[in-house]
Design a protein around this nucleic acid. Structure first.
Length: 426
DNA sequence: TCTCCGATTAGAC
DNA sequence: CTAACGGTCTAATCGGAGA
């Protein structure tokens, strides 16, 4: 229950519409009103769709090869994902949003919570947010407002779905009766935290709509479905349980892995690939000022080809001392690849995971082991060069000339915002 | 029997 | 022409091993 002493929160969830596709359209206005999709790494699955593509029945997460014919038939433009572009556009959007609220949580690449508590004329402000983001970046957004994060997300869903809302919906403006009838019309699967499995299990308990979940017997819910859904229920009942997290907490594990564009059979190529993944993972680690003391390396064959021999080895080792040094960690990673490698398999994917992560500052040292002074200058220079001239400008040497394993990206747009040579409207 | 830990599950985007 | 199905991250929960 909402305590009477507690001020009603006004939380906004601002979500970009069809974000990746919208980013592409900013630099290709000719694509507006046409079916466009963005594909996952390796041009594998559909991960963003324009409204026109959705209308054709193209599903989120659908494998590209399944819809290729349909796409050709309807002139759907399919683009490889261009993360440099999306990350840059995201930063621009997030910076604009931050101007509207002192407290902001950047929840994902295309979503941000804003705390608008105590501010007047929220609807006007929301339209202003939409308008300014559109004018300054070309990205369309929707705004949902509610007393909790879960209800703000739901409000955003309503704003997106109902044209009459014109992209803004404030749950807090509704009467109790309006809330009841609205929530009774929305499927429980639309609730943040309720996925496919959970909604199937919930329906066995006759919980089908958001209102059903809001009114369900709490103790039973807790016993059958756990603490997460209990929090969700309380949030639907307007009792805040999920706090706004303004500063992003340091990651507890960092993974870098990728499927290969072509199957890999030889050890050296695998080592090259893992070296690159290690460099990426270590750079992320240094970016958050951390060290890791456990590394895990894994290889895998193609699980979608059961007729081929399968092998999915994975080994982890503790590091003698916590580190974020690419060269050092790469020695271990290479060693693990050698240990796991078995000839005769067609490898489709590999990766590295860094864990047992601690702040780089408070180093725990073993008083019995003589400590080698750690030279961080090489890594700092490397990070600085890559930040200045673009990722991959400088990397730890790999001799391999065979690059056939690199990601398939046959349909990528230019890096419009970060590459001087990119020509828009080509 | 209790606790710990790694593996598995479920969810988000 | 064929074959083709993403990558990261967190928290909760489960189940076995060891104390």
């Amino acid at each position: 229950m909402q305590s009477s002493r507690q001020k009603l929160q006004q939380l906004a969830l601002v979500d970009c519409n069809n974000f990746y596709v919208s980013c592409e359209r900013v630099f290709r206005p000719d694509l507006i009103n046409t079916p466009v999709i963005a594909l996952s790494n390796n041009d594998g699955c559909v991960i963003s769709r324009s409204n026109e593509a959705k209308a054709l029945g193209i599903k989120m997460g659908q494998p590209w090869f399944e819809i290729k014919a349909l796409a050709q038939e309807h002139n759907v433009l399919a683009l490889s994902s261009n993360y440099a572009l999306y990350a840059d556009m995201s930063n621009r959007v997030m910076n604009i949003l931050h101007e509207f609220a002192p407290r902001q949580e950047v929840y994902s690449i295309d979503e941000s919570f804003l705390d608008l508590t105590g501010m007047p004329y929220l609807k006007d402000m929301s339209y202003q947010i939409k308008q300014r983001v559109m004018q300054w970046t070309g990205i369309p957004v929707c705004v949902g407002i509610g007393p909790t994060k879960t209800l703000a997300k739901l409000a955003n869903h309503i704003a997106k779905k109902h044209p009459r809302s014109k992209g803004v919906f404030n749950f807090n403006e509704l009467s109790e009766q309006q809330k009841d009838s609205l929530l009774a019309k929305i499927s429980v699967s639309e609730v943040w935290g309720v996925g496919r499995r959970l909604s199937a299990r919930l329906s066995a308990y006759n919980v089908h709509t958001v209102q059903d979940l809001k009114l369900a017997h709490t103790a039973t819910l807790r016993a059958q479905f756990g603490v997460v859904i209990e929090k969700t229920q309380r949030e639907l009942q307007e009792q805040p349980c999920i706090e706004l997290t303004e500063v992003e907490p340091a990651k507890k594990q960092i993974v870098s892995s990728r499927s290969f564009g072509a199957m890999v059979t030889d050890l050296n190529t695998l080592k090259d690939a893992v070296s690159l993944f290690t460099a990426n993972a270590c750079q992320k680690l240094r970016a958050q000022n951390s060290h890791a003391s456990m590394i895990q390396v894994f290889l895998s064959t193609n699980r979608f080809r059961p007729e081929l021999a399968q092998y999915n080895p994975c080994i982890s080792v503790p590091l003698p001392q916590p580190s974020s040094d690419t060269v050092h960690i790469n020695k271990w990673a290479n060693h693990l690849v050698e240990r796991m490698f078995k000839a005769g398999y067609q490898y489709k994917k590999a990766g590295i995971m860094l864990s047992e992560i601690s702040p780089a500052s408070q180093e725990q040292t073993d008083m019995w082991e003589p400590q080698e002074p750690v030279d961080t200058s090489l890594m700092r220079t490397l990070d600085a060069l890559n930040a200045r001239y673009g990722r991959g400008t400088v990397s730890v040497s790999t001799q391999g000339a065979d690059h056939s394993w690199h990601m398939k990206q046959e349909r990528k747009s230019p890096n419009y915002t970060t590459d001087w040579n990119a020509t828009p409207f080509a």
